[in-house]
């Protein structure tokens, strides 16, 4: 394919990509900033700790969905440069999950480790959330280019398949914690089922090249 005939949105310049990255960065910071402002103005409602816990958990899961949308979008629309924002999205997911965890340990339980341990054992949804955070941590730690090089692309990719586990654990965590109204966790379930389903379809397609052969891209399959 001749790169020159691709429309701009498919092949932006380095500067344009940098601008897009800044915009996405700012958008990803906004929810945290909003919480900060609401806290400062004492406008978090009757149960501020619950508000913060829920908002940070919700954003962790939402940003995770956006992160997992990169690969399918890239393939469907052939916008390969999207890969360049994926790391940032993944790290923002980890950022919100960490805030969520800190909220729980600090504001909710106030470092009552005995209570926390009891909670992790007693409340299965906490166990699952905790597992999701644990599974996320090595991904965040190996997100740098240096780590990709050190691990080698193959091992790095294998490790980062853990993100699928994180998605499943995240949704189970949400499904398990609501009292009765499953609407919102089911929406997340649907979104993640779609995002993972697309991957399965592509995987099956790529596995058995038909007479026409699959439309292979030069980019390696990424989780």
């Amino acid at each position: 394919m001749n790169a020159n005939v691709l429309p701009r949105w498919r092949q932006p310049s380095a500067t344009q990509i940098r601008v897009v990255k800044v915009v996405i960065f700012v958008l990803c910071v906004l929810p945290a900033l909003r919480l900060g402002v609401l806290m400062w103005r004492n406008e978090l409602g009757a149960n501020p700790i619950e508000h913060i816990t829920r908002a940070t958990g919700w954003w962790a899961l939402t940003v995770l969905a956006l992160t997992l949308a990169v690969t399918p979008l890239r393939r469907v629309l052939s916008v390969h440069w999207l890969l360049r924002v994926r790391r940032m999205l993944g790290l923002f997911c980890f950022f919100y999950a960490s805030l969520h965890f800190v909220t729980y340990v600090w504001l909710d339980q106030f470092f009552d480790w005995q209570g926390i341990i009891a909670d992790v054992i007693k409340r299965p949804f906490i166990t699952v959330g905790f597992s999701a955070l644990l599974a996320m941590t090595p991904l965040a730690l190996t997100s740098t280019s240096a780590m990709v090089r050190r691990l080698g692309a193959k091992r790095w990719l294998a490790l980062h398949r853990l993100v699928y586990l994180v998605a499943i654990l995240g949704v189970v965590h949400f499904l398990w914690l609501v009292k009765k109204d499953l609407t919102e966790p089911l929406v997340f379930f649907g979104v993640f089922a779609l995002l993972l389903g697309v991957r399965v379809v592509y995987w099956l397609k790529d596995r058995r090249p038909g007479p026409a052969g699959p439309l292979r891209t030069s980019v390696p399959k990424m989780p």
Binding site: I49, Q109, F110, G115, A118, D119, K122, R123, P124, W176
Partner: peptide, 19 residues
């Protein structure tokens, strides 16, 4: 007697920080 999915041993009184 705990709720099957969470403990009932403590509570947050709205307006208070700790449980």
């Amino acid at each position: 007697v705990d709720h099957p999915r969470w403990s009932q041993a403590r509570e947050r009184r709205l307006g208070e920080f700790g449980k």
